[in-house]
């Protein structure tokens, strides 16, 4: 048996999550006394995975797999799992990963658990801890099938270096048919996405209007951060829907979340609870967000944010 990890690439390059799932897969394999096999589709530099413990890499180079198709990819993962006799399959929580994982599970008659945040607490019975109730709780879940599919919650395990001298095998899966066609992909280029960002700077209704987002973008720029917003802000059309975070928006699992002019309603917090460090800037000392924050400044955003930008620029140039 083995542990199979699917390492996602984008234009030939591994996503950061690919290293996180590999780090995780290596540790799960150690727990089970077996090896980890990493599946990489159309990647240009597989050797990067060794650093995170990839003992064996299955390299797939196939032009028809250039565009993502969940059904086809799920089938490729299934074939890889069968080839490697994998009992545990680990997938990330990017948009493609979350799309794939339930399909992979059904293909392999496997039980599936999403939002996993830590190593299995027991391997027999196989039990993992996962987030539920929009990060307001965790549930310890047993998977009772022989084959198991897990999706690892982003930024929950982190990157763990574990250099190995692994091997690469070429793998030529059968590519199944699908009449679901991708017509176009529109990428907002050049911007850090909320999903990938280590730091997220988010603005709420306290910013008064879309014209005041310049300073939020500038703060994000200085920090190399993604921008986000509360739900009313996107409902009012001040910011695009893709920036709405919270229970009914995107989840944020960054290292740092900076909330400016956001009250901290329960539905907002539900989406950002998994961020490691939270900073709140709000004029109202009673704003509920302070209870959920690590660092807080009671103050007017229009005064604090420009100062913070200026000081951060100094800090960055001193620490460059």
């Amino acid at each position: 048996m083995s542990v199979l990890v699917y390492a996602e690439t984008s234009e030939g390059k591994f996503k950061k999550s690919a290293f996180e799932v590999t780090s995780y897969g290596k540790k799960v394999a150690e727990q089970l006394g077996t090896n980890v096999v990493v599946l990489a589709i159309n990647s240009s530099d597989n050797s990067l995975l060794y650093k995170y413990g990839a003992e064996k890499i299955l390299n797939v180079a196939n032009d028809t797999l250039k565009t993502f198709n969940a059904k086809i990819y799920a089938n490729v993962i299934k074939q890889a799992a069968e080839r490697e006799k994998s009992e545990i399959i680990i997938i990330d929580s990017n948009s493609n990963g979350l799309y794939l994982a339930p399909l992979v599970a059904v293909n392999l008659n496997a039980g599936y658990t999403s939002n996993v945040i830590a190593l299995p607490t027991s391997t027999s019975p196989f039990t993992v801890k996962r987030k539920s109730f929009s990060s307001k709780a965790f549930s310890n879940t047993q998977i009772t099938t022989e084959v198991k599919v897990l999706s690892l919650s982003k930024n929950s395990f982190g990157l763990v270096e574990n250099e190995v001298s692994g091997s690469i095998e070429n793998f030529e899966p059968v590519v199944v048919e699908s009449n679901l066609k991708s017509d176009s992909i529109q990428q907002t280029s050049g911007k850090v996405t909320i999903a990938d960002a280590d730091i997220v700077v988010s603005g709420g209704r306290g910013l008064k209007g879309p014209e005041n987002w310049g300073m939020i973008e500038e703060l994000a720029d200085v920090l190399g951060a993604a921008t986000a917003c509360s739900k009313p802000v996107s409902d009012l059309g001040w910011r695009p829907h893709s920036e709405h975070v919270g229970q009914t928006g995107k989840p944020v699992a960054s290292n740092l979340y900076i909330a400016v002019g956001i009250s901290g309603a329960i539905q907002h917090l539900a989406g950002i609870n998994s961020s490691k460090v939270k900073v709140v800037i709000n004029t109202d000392p009673e704003a509920p967000f302070f209870k959920a924050a690590d660092y807080g400044i009671v103050g007017d955003a229009f005064n604090v944010v420009p100062k913070l930008i200026e000081k951060l620029k100094e800090f960055k140039s001193n620490n460059a």
């Binding site: 599936y112 307001k136 965790f138 310890n140 879940t141 009772t144 209870k291 959920a292």
Partner: peptide
């Protein structure tokens, strides 16, 4: 069934 929840936990109280 393929999975079952054994128990729930709440996050540790925040400092």
């Amino acid at each position: 069934v393929t999975t079952s929840i054994v128990s729930f936990e709440k996050p540790a109280a925040k400092s």
